[in-house]
C-alpha cells in the first residue's frame, strides 16, 4: 500500500513538474524545476534497499524492529543540496532576465533567435 502511494506521489509530482516547466512564465518554469527534482528525490527514497522503522545508527532493536537504509538518505541530502544550488542560480538568472527584458514571458526573451 505504502509503495503504491509513494509511486503515485512520485508520478504526480513529476507530472506537475513537467507541466510547470513547459509554462511560458519563467518563474513557473523555475518552480517546475524544483518540483521535478523533489519528485526524483522521493523516487530515490522509495528505492531504499530495505524498509525499516528505526534510524540506522542504533542498537536498540527490541520487538523485531528493523533498521532503515541510510544510503538513500545520504544520497537525497546530496541531491537536495545540488538541486537547491541549481534552483538558486536559476532564480538569480530569472531576476536578471526580468530586469534586462522587463518581462518574464519566455516568448519575449528571444534575442538569441534574432
Amino acid at each position: 500500500m505504502i509503495n503504491l502511494i509513494t509511486a503515485l506521489a512520485v508520478g504526480f509530482l513529476f507530472a506537475v513538474g513537467v507541466f510547470l516547466m513547459l509554462r511560458r512564465d519563467l518563474i513557473k518554469a523555475a518552480m517546475g524545476f524544483s518540483v521535478l527534482f523533489n519528485s526524483v528525490n522521493l523516487l530515490i527514497l522509495a528505492v531504499g534497499a530495505f524498509r525499516g522503522d528505526v534510524a540506522p545508527f542504533t542498537t536498540n532493536l527490541e520487538g523485531g524492529r528493523t533498521l532503515s537504509d541510510p544510503l538513500v538518505q545520504a544520497l537525497i541530502l546530496t541531491a537536495i543540496v545540488v538541486s537547491f544550488g541549481s534552483y538558486a542560480l536559476l532564480l538569480g538568472m530569472v531576476s536578471l532576465i526580468s530586469r534586462r527584458f522587463h518581462t518574464v514571458d519566455s516568448d519575449e526573451v528571444v534575442n538569441l533567435k534574432r
Binding site: 516547466m21 542560480l89 536559476l90 534575442n111
Partner: peptide, 9 residues
C-alpha cells in the same frame, strides 16, 4: 545570460 538559462534547464 539567455543561453546560460536555456542550458541550465
Amino acid at each position: 545570460l539567455e543561453a546560460a538559462f536555456k542550458y541550465l534547464f
